[in-house]
Design a protein around this nucleic acid. Structure first.
Length: 153
DNA sequence: GCCAACGTTGGC
DNA sequence: GCCAACGTTGGC
């Protein structure tokens, strides 16, 4: 089992949005970066644990915990010519983008990025590196444990 | 709104 | 296959 951090803009899908969905599960659609796609397609397994991170907003930070609910499958939004995630180079026979489903587990007190930066134990987290833009990053088990114990305990 | 950092595109 | 130009991300 692996641990991940997945960014979502709360204006798109917030932790509250996820919690109020029927089944509390959602396709992690819209990823258009190959590295992030590969993490979903090649490495994520059902049961992997996820920090749900709010990005591009007033209070960026970890807002909740989710779990991978369904293995990666083609992202439906790449096929919709009217949608903003449409990819003209993708076909049903040869999809380019994949997503997993993620299910709500719990909301947490918001752990802001500045709070995360305050802890030397977390300084190697991808999310805290200069210039990091990846929307999906692996989280080290020791970092996962530390955050749960020291910040959410 | 700024801007550094990064990924992608396309001409050559 | 190089690399300049461009578009995007995302914290501040």
């Amino acid at each position: 089992m692996r641990y991940w951090l997945m960014k979502s803009e709360p204006s798109e899908v917030s932790i509250d949005d996820l919690a109020s969905l029927p089944g509390q599960s959602i396709a992690w659609y819209g990823v258009r970066n190959y590295q992030a796609r590969n993490f979903m397609r090649d490495q994520m397994r059902v049961g992997d644990m996820v920090f749900f991170y709010h990005s591009s907003c007033a209070e960026p930070g970890i807002a909740g915990i989710a779990v991978v609910d369904k293995l990666a499958y083609p992202d439906e939004t790449q096929f919709d010519p009217a949608g903003k995630y449409f990819d003209p180079k993708a076909t049903r026979e040869n999809p380019r983008w994949y997503n997993v489903d993620v299910r709500f587990l719990k909301k947490t007190p918001l752990i802001s990025i500045s709070e995360l930066r305050r802890h030397p134990e977390l300084e190697s987290m991808r999310i805290l590196q200069k210039g990091n833009r990846l929307s999906i990053t692996p989280v080290d088990p020791s970092e996962w444990d530390y955050i749960n114990r020291a910040l959410l305990g």
